[in-house]
Design a protein around this nucleic acid. Sequence first.
DNA 1: TTTATAATTCTATAATTATGGAAATATGGA
DNA 2: TCCATATTTCCATAATTATAGAATTATAAA
Lengths: 103, 103
Amino acid sequence: METKNVLDALSALAQETRLEIFRTLVRHAPSGQKPGELSEALSLAPATLSFHLKELSHAGLVDVEQQGRCLIYTANLAAMTGLVGYLTENCCGGNNCTPQSPC
Amino acid sequence: METKNVLDALSALAQETRLEIFRTLVRHAPSGQKPGELSEALSLAPATLSFHLKELSHAGLVDVEQQGRCLIYTANLAAMTGLVGYLTENCCGGNNCTPQSPC
DNA sequence: TTTATAATTCTATAATTATGGAAATATGGA
DNA sequence: TCCATATTTCCATAATTATAGAATTATAAA
C-alpha cells in the first residue's frame, strides 16, 4: 500500500464517527448496509452520515453498490489488510510486529 | 487497546509529517533520536517538529527521555503493536486479517 | 557567573475538517 | 406522469489542526 493511500485510510479512520461506521460495516460484512440503516443505528443526520461515508469511500475503505433506489455500503476488508500490512512493515523496521508475534 | 487510544494513535499517524517522523524513529529504534537530528533530517522548523512530537507523545506512540541538555525520542513499538492488534480484531469481526493470512 | 546551545511554549494566522439544514437528484410505484 | 422515499450535494458555520516566528526555559561549558 502506498504512503498516500495509507494516510488517506488513517485519516478516514481517525475520527470517532467514521471508526464507528466502519466497525459497524465490518460486523455486517459481507452483506453490507444501507445508509438508512446506518443513520438509524448510529443516530446520525443523513447529511452527516453521507459526508463520512464519502470520506471512507474516497479512502478506499468502503465500497458502494446500487440496488434499486437504495445503496449498499460494504467494508473493504482487503484495504484494511493492506493498511495493517503497511503498519506492520513500518512498525519494527521490517520485523513482524503483529499481536501473534510481538516485537 | 481502548478505542479512545486507538483514535489518538490513528490521528497522530494520519498526518504526513508525523508519519514520516514516526517511521524515521522506527528506523532508528531502539536508540532513538534528538529533535535536532530530526529537525535537520526532515527539514522541519524546530517549533513545528516539537508540535508534532508532542502529538505523537500524547498518543503514546513515542517516548521521551532526557540526556543532559538533549532529549531522546524513541518509537514506542508496543503501542504500535497494540494499534495493529486493534485493527486486526476489528477488521474481520474477530478473524485474522494480517498480511500473513488475509481474510 | 556569563554565554551558547537545545528544545519547548506562546501566539497569531492559515488551512482543514465536521455538522446539519435545505435543496437537489434519482428511483420505483400508484 | 406524479408522488413518496432514499440519498446526496450545497452551503454556512463552528471547531479543530498545522505552521512558524519570537520569547522562554534549561542545561552545560568557559
